[in-house]
Design a protein around this nucleic acid. Structure first.
Lengths: 119, 119, 119, 119
DNA sequence: GTGGTCTAGACCACC
DNA sequence: GTGGTCTAGACCACA
C-alpha cells in the first residue's frame, strides 16, 4: 500500500481489505490484523485503521469479538459486492453521464457500442 | 500537478494542457509555456514535456511555430473533445462494462437509472 | 445535555439531534449547528460532534453542503424512525426476551397482558 | 456503583443488592453489609442505605436480626424474581407497547421475530 | 467560515 | 492483549 492517490487513507485501507475478501484471500470467520498491528506496519495512526474497520463493520463486512479482534463476516463477499454496486450506481454512473454529456456522446451510441461488443 | 498516480508523466502533462483548453483557459492561437520553462517548473526533464507536446501536436491540439514556440490550434477544443471521445469509447467504456458484469449490473438497470435522473 | 449515562458522548449527541427531528423542532432543509459551534457549547471536542454527525449522515438523517454546514435531510424523520425500529428489533427486543426467560414470563402471558390493555 | 442515572439513590442500592442475590453471589441466611458500613463506602448517608434495606425487607428479600444486622431471606431469590416480574409487567411492558406503537411495530412482527430467534 | 482527515497520546472495558 | 472513546491540535479543500 502506497497511499499515493488522493483518497483518504482510511478509505484506501478499507478498499484494501475488501479487495482481499473479493479475491477470496481473506475468508469468512478468519481474524484480520489488529488495528495497532496494521497501523504500525502501514505507519499510520491506529485510529486511522480503526476508522477503516469501523466503516467495514457498518457494512457488515467484518465484525468484532470483544477483546479478541476483528473477523471477516459470514456474508462479507456479498456485502462487498453490494457496497460496490451502490458506489457504482450513485457515484461513478453520474460521473459517466456527465462525461458523456460533455463529450456529446448519446446513450444510443453506447448501446450501439455495447451490441458490437456482444456480437 | 503532483504526478501521484500511475500514469506516465508525459501523459499527465498532456492531460493538464487539454484540461486548460477544455475549460477555455487557454484559447486558440495563444502561446503556451515553453518546453524548458514548463520542464523547470514541474521539475521534469524538458524531453518529457516535449513528448507531451508532440502527442498533442499529433492530435492537432497544438502546433509549432519554428523558433517561436507552441500555440493552441484553431480547432483545439474540438480536437480535445474528439480525442477524449475516442478514449472514453475505447478504453473507459470497456472497463465500465467489465465492472458492470462483475457487480451483476444489467444494462436495463442503467437505463432505468438514467431515466430517473432525467425526469 | 448532561452526558450522565454510560453511553458514548457521540451517541448521545446523535440521539439529541434525532429527538429534535422526531419532535419536529428541527425540520427538513434547515441548517443545524456547526461541529465547532456545538462542540464549544457542549464542551466536547469538535471531533466528537463530527463523529455524531457522521453517524447521522450515514443514516440519511442529515446531509452536508460543502463549506456551508450540515442540514436536516428531506426524509430525516422517516430515517430516524427506521433507525429506531432497527435498534428496537435488534438490540432491545433480544434483551427483553432474555429478561422474560430469566423471570419465567411466557409469551402467552404477554399476549394476555396486551389483550387486557387493548380491551 | 456510580449513581449516574436519574433513579433515586436508594432505589439503585436496592437494585444493587437484588442483582447480587439474582447472581447467587449473596445467598440465603448470609449477612449483608451494615448500613453504616455500606453508607461509608458509597459515600451516602446511612439513612439512604436504610431506606433501601427497608424496601427490600418489605419485599421479604432480606430480614433483620435485632442488634446483629440484615440477612438474606430464605426465599430471597424467588422474591426478587417476583418483584422484577411485577415491575416488568406493570412498568416496562407498557413502555414497550408505547414504543412499538410509536415506531409502527405490530405484535405480529414481534412474534415473527421471536420464532426466528427460537428456530 | 465550513467540514474532513490525520496524528499522538490518553484512559477505559473486556478477555 | 484487543477494540472504543475522547482530546488537543494540526493541516487541508471548499465557498
Amino acid at each position: 500500500m502506497n497511499f499515493q492517490n488522493d483518497k483518504a487513507i482510511y478509505i484506501q485501507i478499507a478498499e484494501f481489505v475488501m479487495e482481499k475478501i473479493l479475491r477470496n484471500e481473506w475468508v469468512s470467520d478468519s481474524k484480520i490484523r489488529s488495528v495497532r498491528d496494521l497501523g504500525a506496519e502501514l505507519e499510520v495512526n491506529p485510529n486511522t485503521v480503526m476508522r477503516a474497520y469501523d466503516l467495514l463493520q457498518n457494512q457488515d463486512i467484518i465484525f468484532n469479538k470483544r477483546g479478541l479482534g476483528f473477523y471477516v463476516a459470514a456474508q462479507a463477499r456479498e456485502s462487498v459486492i453490494q457496497l460496490k454496486r451502490k458506489q457504482f450506481l450513485e457515484i461513478e454512473l453520474p460521473r459517466i453521464f456527465i462525461t458523456m454529456e460533455l463529450l456529446g456522446i448519446s446513450p444510443e451510441e453506447i448501446i450501439e457500442n455495447y451490441k458490437t461488443r456482444v456480437s
